[in-house]
Design a protein around this nucleic acid. Structure first.
Lengths: 193, 193
DNA sequence: AGCGGGTTATGACAGGCGTCATAGTAGCAG
DNA sequence: CTGCTACTATGACGCCTGTCATAACCCGCT
């Protein structure tokens, strides 16, 4: 009866890895850093992740990706109207960015960029997740009565803006880019309807 | 009488470094990789760049930054009307992305992201350049008769979109995000006037 | 009590990193 | 030819990386 969804070293490792990968990227995050940040024994690495670093990175990215998935879903659940939902998404990101003292960031951007030249599972996961977010936004926008083709384009624009605003906010230590992005995208959605 | 603006090993090293840093980032780009890509002698490193890796990275970023600066200026020089200029900027980026077989990318994003936690000269250069691009767009938009506050916001939105679209295009090996971004930003500028 | 499997501890390995010390070469000035 | 300066060559340094082999531990089971 041990589902182990919360406590164990394995989960702590994945959480720490996700956090470090967001902020430092693949190359700059060492396994020794991860176990130190997770306060986990080094020996656990080869036990829980026999696939080595790539397995850890893959699973850690998966964790972060689903967090964004949930945030998109929550945005459209909590608010009424697509415009409000889109804006809520960016405002929420801004608040999380502040809460984590500008150490947040997209769970895939850095790692996916470093692997953009390859075709391994990590690169594919990055591609899939970005397209997944676009489609998620597009689906909600269609549901809000926006023309399907326009919804797809809007979703892509929103994800573009999200990724860019995360960069600018993090580099500039200022949430203004994220807030500004939220307002701009809200207006764009309003004009599309 | 040796201004040496074109040929020498120093210039080749900076060009190669700029290219590698765009695509692989700071941590994943080694000095040995750079001299190999530049077809330059390893001994030249400590001669031309006694400041070590950070000096090379700083100067290479500077090269890339001014390239973007020039592209912004060219966009508003070649076209008539702010909308056309903004769209031309993204189209041009898309074409360059294709030309370089998706190995292009923002000359600062990756490196600046890796240094976002620090406050060294590299991090500051990244911040300055991003804000510089925003201001450049904003200035041209003001000149086109757009309200100053709106121009600033628009400039920030455009740079956000640029950074995000570069990521999506590179990761997805597809210029569609850049082209879509150009259309979206063109429309945004049109509506602001 | 003793066994056994899920965990952890620890150290070694081969290789890459940035940096540096040192020696060597080329080519021009005197 | 001698010097001098600009440039290049090369190897070593200490450190860090991911991976692996090996041994030890803990704890419930029979």
């Amino acid at each position: 009866m041990t589902t182990t969804t919360t406590d164990g070293p394995r989960e702590r490792i994945l959480l720490a890895a996700s956090r470090l990968l967001r902020t430092r990227g693949y190359g700059a995050t060492s396994l020794r850093d991860i176990v130190k940040a997770a306060d986990a024994p080094r020996g656990s690495l080869q036990h829980y992740f026999p696939g080595g670093k790539d397995q850890i990175v893959f699973e850690a990215m998966t964790v972060g990706i689903s967090q964004v998935d949930q945030m998109i879903a929550e945005a459209f659940r909590r608010t009424s109207g697509a415009e409000a939902a889109v804006r809520w998404f960016f405002v929420q990101s801004a608040e999380e960015m502040e809460r984590r003292e500008f150490e947040a960031g997209c769970p895939v951007a850095l790692v996916a960029l470093e692997h953009a030249g390859s075709d391994d599972e990590i690169a594919q996961l990055g591609r899939r997740s970005l397209n997944g977010w676009i489609e998620r936004f597009a689906a909600h926008l269609r549901e809000a009565g926006i023309d399907p083709r326009a919804a797809r384009r809007l979703g892509a624009t929103i994800v573009n803006q999200y990724e860019g605003a995360l960069i600018l906010s993090r580099v500039g230590h200022d949430v203004e880019p994220l807030r500004n992005a939220g307002n701009a995208m809200r207006r764009l959605v309003a004009d599309a309807r």
